[in-house]
Design a protein around this nucleic acid. Structure first.
Length: 835
RNA sequence: GCCGGAGUGGCGGAACGGCAGACGCACGGGACUUAAAAUCCUGGGCCCCGGGAGGGGCGUGUGGGUUCAAAUCCCACCUCCGGCACCA
């Protein structure tokens, strides 16, 4: 093949990217006359260059967006940057580059790379969370939450990452380590801002039911994280002082089995209980030791249970028993009430604790199949059974007992039904400077004062000094800190913590509906038109973080009257990772494949094609150098297919194609090619509509290309049917457009069209072209394929049966045998069952 | 421990009650070429019998079951991956 016939992807891709940008074909506005489709990829942190994970994510969404556009939808397909965050600050400390400079340089580079991949974004809608015109509204969001009692400040034990020098939310601690830098997290008592996500715990859990378009896996992860459990609160009374100690339990039926009370070492009552007692010093020392343990140490595997007797006793409200009060390291102050009733016979943790410290074990639920003996039990019996040693409740099945005990406690006023969640409020203060400042002022006279909306944004100073030591640069910036109270006008100090960047990303999908709005975060009518997101795509690592936060913010804004829907993301696709040599790509492993290099060597279309073809989107994808070469080869093969047919196609110009495609006008070879063409249209359409079967859709396209070559090699050039070839080539180009947009656009124009291929309607298949006169069917004898027969599609079951029984290779297998049954599956197979 | 997902040729994967291995990668053979690259055609799950055309058996993690028919449905188990986990 001559040099100029080789597909010059570099020139073609650059040319069409320029043209699309010039003509603005991907720009969208609201259009009530068309159905809308909002396709969204999780926007990136501008870390420097894009990696293969990004390419995969955005290629999937781009294919979806392009397909929907051709199907007649008004498609919103935006992109932006989650641009606040620690790496920018670290760069400032290490290299002395200002965080905004560093960030904007990265954004410029990544944008250029994204453009080189030919994604169909409406770039006019890009949002940058670090820009005042965006974070102004992040601050506005905070103020609304504050106004509605959903943002509050409290002193609490919090997760502190010593390396990032900031606190973290619970969701951002994994196995006791910082999600970002992997350092062990410590516990600190600090005054911090929280968002009351727990107020929505119930709805966040219940509404998972409304998300059938989410992967089961993600819903289960959120369910686990929210951790709802039903039980009761029961109040014990301290002997002597009468102080109440309330516990949460899921097993009110075991209340008669309580043999000790266990308090978290940090429990507020501990100090009063031990005051003046000989145990006081030891308990205080124990408390300090536990408090200083890191999350990892405290929850280490096995978890040796430790505790100390306080010297005090309390009274069981049900049995009247006198119960010793202990402090124990396994009781967490953050969950429930920070106090646990110890029932060794029926709770494994209590059991271990009781055995270690010689506390009594009292069986109150009897195992129906094997009698439990407290003296010999080797482990707790947590299963249901029959209540014993429980006064008036003896003989009740334990499940029923739960109800009866709670009812009794409520009647006596010493307990009540309670639903407890594992989910805790979202800690959002960050002691970092490169983030959206929390719009709060502290005034000696007025206290905590929110910045008025009209004063937003609270701007980040541009002259921050990053030393990496001591307090945040924001806290050390006098010009920022010192201000006047918006209420009384007196001297005041600004809050110097910034917001968790997950707040910035918890509402960005709303801003895309109205990104330039200077008067409000978004216009309700525009949001009503575009939202919710029809298809969201991203990594599963945000299953609990970003996706839970966004659901919460959506519900909060809905309750404030700003939104009219309950859930932000109707359908979610969690794409798999891109691996190399079986492992996640990372600099330390040295197995990183650079998208930039691949695009340079093989072209954007080949990269996109390989990534879509190599694995279904939700599965991990193993990068293969040979694989992408194969994809590049196919791009060329496709290009040559159309190029070499252009002279023949020229003959179809201006003729009546529909007339030329009438069945009477076609020979067998033409009909066969048309069958493949229309079969492929059907297959690709199905694969893109009801699932994301990009890999099988592309496989089907490859079969079409193979059939095209076969036709051209088997029918002499002068006898080739121009109308059939034109239909095949046009269909192929339209079908490949979502995957290889440059290739499709180039060929579309070479075929003589002047409008963009991406604005064309999606092809439809012709049922008539799919019909066949005869079908081949397999003939099985007792389930094994022995022969094949060709029968007319119109053949009756009786005729098929006769043909099968007469088939040559079937004879030896049925000769002399009794035919028990013949199963005929028309169009597929015949199974002759013999004995 | 509880919950979820996945195990199919040398490799990525397809089929999700009806002919296992579509499509591609890698590999073998052939054509074109002085040669190579590129391209085009072609072969192939594994084992056994046959010189050959051909024939037979076994095959979707393991063991059972349902069915004329199971990768697909049911039961039990194994392995790997992921989530939660001293949450009362």
């Amino acid at each position: 093949m001559s040099a100029e016939e080789r597909y010059n992807f570099k020139e073609v891709e650059a040319r069409w990217q320029r043209e699309w940008e010039r003509s603005g074909i991907y720009k969208v506005t609201e259009d009530p006359s068309r159905p809308k489709y909002y396709a969204l990829a999780m926007f990136p942190y501008p870390s420097g260059k894009i990696h293969m994970g990004h390419v995969r994510n955005y290629t999937i969404v781009d294919a979806i967006a392009r397909y929907r556009r051709m199907r007649g939808y008004n498609v919103l397909h935006p992109m932006g940057y989650d641009a606040f965050g620690l790496p920018a600050e670290n760069a400032a400390i290490q290299h002395g580059v200002a965080p905004d400079k560093w960030t904007w340089a990265n954004i410029a580079e990544m944008t250029e790379q994204l453009k080189s991949l030919g994604y169909s974004y409406d770039w006019d809608r890009a949002v940058y969370t670090c820009r005042p015109d965006y974070y102004r509204w992040t601050q506005w969001l905070f103020l609304q939450l504050y106004k509605h009692g959903l943002a509050y400040r409290k002193k609490a034990p919090v997760n502190w990452c010593p390396s990032c020098e900031t606190v973290l939310a619970n969701e951002q601690v994994e196995d006791g380590r910082c999600w970002r830098c992997d350092s062990p997290v410590t516990r600190n008592e600090l005054e911090q801002w929280f968002l009351r996500i727990t107020r929505y715990a119930d709805e966040l859990l219940a509404d998972l039911e409304k998300l059938p378009g989410w992967p089961e896996r993600v819903r289960v992860m959120q369910q686990n994280w929210i951790g709802r459990s039903e039980g009761a609160e029961v109040t014990f009374t301290v002997e002597g002082t009468g102080d109440p100690i309330t516990v949460f339990t899921t097993r009110p039926d075991t209340l008669y089995g309580v043999t000790f009370m266990a308090l978290a070492p940090e429990h507020p009552l501990v100090e009063k209980l031990i005051a003046g007692r000989p145990e006081a010093e030891a308990v205080r020392a124990f408390r300090e030791r536990v408090r200083n343990q890191s999350e990892i140490e405290r929850t280490a595997e096995g978890g040796e249970k430790e505790g100390l007797f306080t010297g005090a006793y309390c009274i069981n409200p049900l049995s009247g028993d006198r119960v010793p009060i202990w402090v124990a390291n396994y009781v967490l102050m953050e969950y429930g009430t920070g106090a646990v009733m110890g029932v060794p016979a029926h709770d494994q943790r209590d059991f271990e604790f009781a055995r270690k410290y010689g506390l009594p074990v009292r069986v109150v639920i009897q195992n129906p199949s094997r009698n439990l003996d407290p003296a010999t039990m080797a482990e707790a019996y947590p299963e249901p059974g029959v209540m014993v040693n429980s006064g008036p409740f003896d003989g009740l099945p334990s499940e029923e007992g739960k109800e009866r005990v709670v009812a009794y406690l409520e009647e006596k006023g010493v307990g009540r039904r309670k639903v407890q969640y594992r989910l805790r409020d979202w800690l959002i203060s960050r002691q970092r400077a490169w983030g959206a400042p929390i719009p709060i002022v502290y005034c000696d006279r007025c206290g905590t004062v929110p910045v008025p909306e009209s004063d937003l944004p609270v701007l980040l100073p541009e002259d921050l000094v990053f030393t990496g030591k001591g307090a945040s640069p924001l806290a050390r910036h006098e010009g920022f800190v010192n201000t006047t109270c918006p209420r009384c006008g007196g001297p005041a100090r600004r809050e110097t913590d910034t917001m968790d960047t997950f707040i910035c990303s918890s509402w960005y999908y709303l801003r895309f509906a109205d990104p330039q709005n200077g008067q409000a975060p978004f216009d309700r009518a525009k949001v009503d038109y575009w939202l919710p997101v029809d298809q969201y795509v991203g990594g599963v690592e945000h299953a609990v973080l970003h996706l839970l936060y966004s659901r919460f913010i959506t519900k909060a804004l809905r309750d404030m009257g700003y939104l009219g829907f309950d859930e932000p993301f109707t359908n979610l696709l969690t794409q798999g990772m891109v691996l190399k040599d079986g492992a996640k790509m990372s600099k330390s492993k040295g197995n990183v494949v650079s998208p930039e290099e691949m695009i340079n060597r093989y072209g954007a279309d080949a990269c996109r094609l390989f990534i879509l073809f190599a694995a279904p989107p939700e599965r991990d994808l193993e990068w293969s150098d040979e694989g992408i070469e194969g994809a590049a080869r196919f791009v060329n093969r496709f290009y040559r297919m159309v190029r070499s047919a252009l002279p023949v196609l020229e003959r179809a110009r201006g003729t009546d194609r529909q007339a030329a495609l009438r069945p009477e006008a076609l020979g067998e070879a033409e009909k066969a090619l048309r069958r493949v063409v229309h079969g492929t249209i059907r297959k690709v359409t199905q694969d893109l509509t009801d699932r994301f079967g990009f890999n099988t859709a592309i496989a089907s396209l490859m079969e079409l290309v193979n059939a095209f070559y076969e036709y051209r090699s088997q029918v002499p050039e002068d006898r080739q049917n121009p109308a059939v070839l034109a239909e095949a080539a046009e269909s192929a180009v339209l079908l490949i457009a979502p995957f290889c947009p440059h290739l499709a656009e180039e060929l579309w124009h070479q075929m003589g069209h002047t409008e963009s291929v991406h604005l064309q309607p999606w092809p439809t298949y012709d049922e008539a072209a799919l019909t066949v006169e005869t079908v081949e069917m397999a003939v099985q004898v007792s389930g094994k394929v022995r022969d094949r027969i060709r029968v007319p599609v119109s053949a009756t079951e009786e005729e098929i049966r006769a043909a099968a029984l007469a088939a040559e290779k079937v004879q030896p297998h049925i000769a002399g045998k009794e035919i028990q049954k013949v199963v005929v599956v028309p169009g597929r197979l015949v199974n002759i069952v013999v004995r």
